[in-house]
Design a protein around this nucleic acid. Sequence first.
RNA 1: GUGAUUGUAGCUCAGUUGGUUAGAGCGUCGGAUUGUGGUUCCGAAGGUCGCCGGUUCGAGACCGGUCUUUCACCCCA
Length: 454
Amino acid sequence: MAQKPSIPKGTRDFSPAEMVRRNYIFDTIKDVFQLYGFMPIETPAMENLDTLLGKYGEEGDKLLFKILNSGDFLAKADKSLLAAGDSNRVTGQISEKGLRYDLTVPFARFVVQHQNEITFPFKRFQIQPVWRADRPQKGRYREFFQCDVDVVGSDSLLNEVELIQIVDEVFRRLNIRVVIKLNNRKVLAGIAEIIGESDRMVDITVAIDKLEKIGLEKVNAELRERGLSAEAIEKLQPILALSGNNAEKLSALAGILASSEVGSKGVEELNKVLDLVNGLDLPTDVEVDLTLARGLNYYTGAIFEVKALDVEIGSITGGGRYDDLTGIFGMKGVSGVGISFGADRIFDVMNQMDLYPDDVTAATQLLFVNFGEKEAAHCLRLAAGLRQKGIRTEIYPDAAKMKKQMSYADKKGIRFVAMVGEDEMTKGLITLKNMQTGEQSAFGLDEVADVVGR
RNA sequence: GUGAUUGUAGCUCAGUUGGUUAGAGCGUCGGAUUGUGGUUCCGAAGGUCGCCGGUUCGAGACCGGUCUUUCACCCCA
């Protein structure tokens, strides 16, 4: 055999069996989105590089897939940069397009670009692949699907509440037990302010985000490493030690952050969202988690993260409010909030726990055996009639041996096989075999539709 | 980007301290059975041992590089 073909690192093929399962996930997510009045949009796989650069932090820029310019791109590049081997600056000259890194930034671009055609508040959903030049590992791929829902042009916290409802509904339908973690960037800003390190919010949040994973000791060590004063770290301790239920945490926090205007605002927002959510009696736990930070630095208010309770895989959904994402594209004062379902991680969770209902397969229901040219022509008409009645029907394309045709049906999980030879043709009948029970008898066309459709 | 790890038939894996012609199970194909699958029996096809180079009389095995798999860190869905 010649050298085997392959696909790029971190990408995957999906077989028919996998695709019906994935579509089941996409379909339930889409159904829920539409139930709340969100409308679909799509944007191109590639964006202009300047749309993407600088939106995801330094780390994010490195993970962007860049697309080489067409034509003789090197001819136009600066020779001295080429000679110097300065990759960073050379890429700016030979690449001006990149693959999208998420769906939120392209959406912000979309909103700005189409602002005159959009009615606000604008509720859209978008289910498309995104690409990151990351090293693949557990639950992490270089090509994966995000399912985003966002509302832009509304400051109301009702939107945050609706998003929580959507998360609850989606995972309830998929039968995945989850916890929704909730925090607010304003609270984090308030904490930074209180301990006297306002400008170090990112460093602080990145470090305390790891509390659950590496423990208090190591978080403090990392804070020191990141250059926080001993005094600030000392002041942070009571906050890191906060425990109890949501109400207890929030009232304690309200006291601590009383002197910080942003911080108090954040606590107030959290309280409001939780009050409304509590009134809904959702079965899913919503937990205030002060250590939840989330890396994307365009978030300004609420931040969400959803974790599966029964599988160790990182977060399967995340999002938050961003007050000025459209501002970078020249449209000020439009606030948005949204979340993103990580379809591929949800797929992994569903597979690991085998949570699919029995009827997701959407397989063919009936196969006509091919006995030869004349018989096949006859079956073609019968099959057309059955398809009109909604029966998923196929005809075996070749007059192969019975054994081969039967085992084809068997392997494809087709429940019924129809046999129409000379005898049945003259009598106007169809011999139907049930592949599960082995029973078989002859019926008219209408009866076949009834039996198979049951 | 850093540090590990994996690679032998379509799939899952054996293969002794380096020694003739690299094996098994499953799957595939053919036959037993020309209008009856899933069970059984018989038979066959299928491998440049990831790739390139090196050591050796001799490499699937040892060494170097490279690609790939998986995992951790960074970061993230």
